[in-house]
Nucleic acid binder design. Sequence first.
DNA 1: ATAGGATATATCCTATAGGATATTGGATCG
DNA 2: CGATCCAATATCCTATAGGATATATCCTAT
Lengths: 245, 245
Amino acid sequence: MGEMQVWPERQTLADEAYTELKSRIIQSILEPGAKLSIDGLAKHMAISQTPIREALARLEVEGLVERRPLSGYTVTPLLTGPEFEDLFELRLLMEPLAASRAAEQAGRTGHDHGLGDFGVLRGLAETPDFGADAKLSRLAFTEADERFHAAVARFSLSPVLAKAIRRLDAHLHLHRAYIEPEAIGETEAEHLAVAAAIIAVKPLAAEEAMRRHLEHSRVRHRAAFAAAAAAGTPAAKPKRAKAAR
Amino acid sequence: MGEMQVWPERQTLADEAYTELKSRIIQSILEPGAKLSIDGLAKHMAISQTPIREALARLEVEGLVERRPLSGYTVTPLLTGPEFEDLFELRLLMEPLAASRAAEQAGRTGHDHGLGDFGVLRGLAETPDFGADAKLSRLAFTEADERFHAAVARFSLSPVLAKAIRRLDAHLHLHRAYIEPEAIGETEAEHLAVAAAIIAVKPLAAEEAMRRHLEHSRVRHRAAFAAAAAAGTPAAKPKRAKAAR
DNA sequence: ATAGGATATATCCTATAGGATATTGGATCG
DNA sequence: CGATCCAATATCCTATAGGATATATCCTAT
């Protein structure tokens, strides 16, 4: 009781198109630079152009696709090296603060913030066991990681901060370009450390745990990035991907 | 030569609708909570619904309007008190860093970053003289302030950082809700201090100048906000704005 | 052989119409 | 008098078609 039932908010075709396109871009099924033909996509998804347009408009604002007014949409290029470093510098600025605040809020009991118990953080800290399909497992890991970081941001109860973190689209960029090493155990341990500090209402410890996690994560991804960059740049030009569908 | 001519990128009707709607929201011509009827807007602008839809989709991602799937769009509510404080905390996190980096980059001569001379910052630091129309003057001031902060962010040459700052939409929120006091002179002086430090290649000084500017700005806006809140909350409910057009 | 220009095609952009759904108002019942 | 149910309306969502523009192809000339 008191737990108000919230509806799944019916999905429109535009929503489906948006989800589908975003998924394909994240999984690099649509490569960076690929041209996105509007009626091509419409035919492929067996819907009309209007919902496709709406989905592309959203994706453009999010930075996943680029638009040239009377020419068409293309998939946004991957992060460059400096952009990668920028991204983590910003995460290191914002996410430890979010963790600290979440720990502070964990102490304020009684206040119904509408987000449930802080204990769920412990569950979200887990990373899924890898199955046979490496590609699918990588995606599952990325999504679990994203959920955890998003949860910490929400529990900070600072909407502006949470939104800013979300808009970095960190996991999206990381997943597109770089293959995670098999350091799943490390990630899970670090997540648990953050979650524990928050639940124990220790802001300073939470802040520090998040900072350490991000620094380790940066190292892990940077290494993978170097490998990817070495494999992808010999032609200097990022391999002009051609149209899709 | 070498300065490649870039076209003004032809505007489509969707672009015009987007600009028009954004402008009306910022100026509070469309009040928070107001319902945005799609074909209502289409008729009012004398265009069809498709461009309106595209514009609304963008505005939704930017957080200016909210959408309920089969119900319609509404204008996003104003910032609450805590959100206001959050906003400035984030600005204090990011913008001093941007100023510092801009100062560093000002030292790296020869590198063509495609943004022109850092000297333009001095000009952008200026705030326009107020004319007779107070409403228009307030808008001009807000836009000048926004341009300056956006320029500093760009000159940091950190695209991710610049984008994160831009996505805060700080000026948009401030202009919607709070009336600036007549502290134009203060603002201009503070801007000039930031610009001077950047041009003089003094990262620490630039960082500190930006921090002080933001702290002063926070105080200035907070005062105005308190007045607005006192005037707007007696009914407890934020004055349910009704439909428009 | 390369550069420049004209034509043809593909695709974007916009408008309009119809089916589907949520919301509003009124009537009925407790 | 208040709540619940039902019908009418307004609006959203989607599909389709046509005009406008950019891009690609081919041809000609230097």
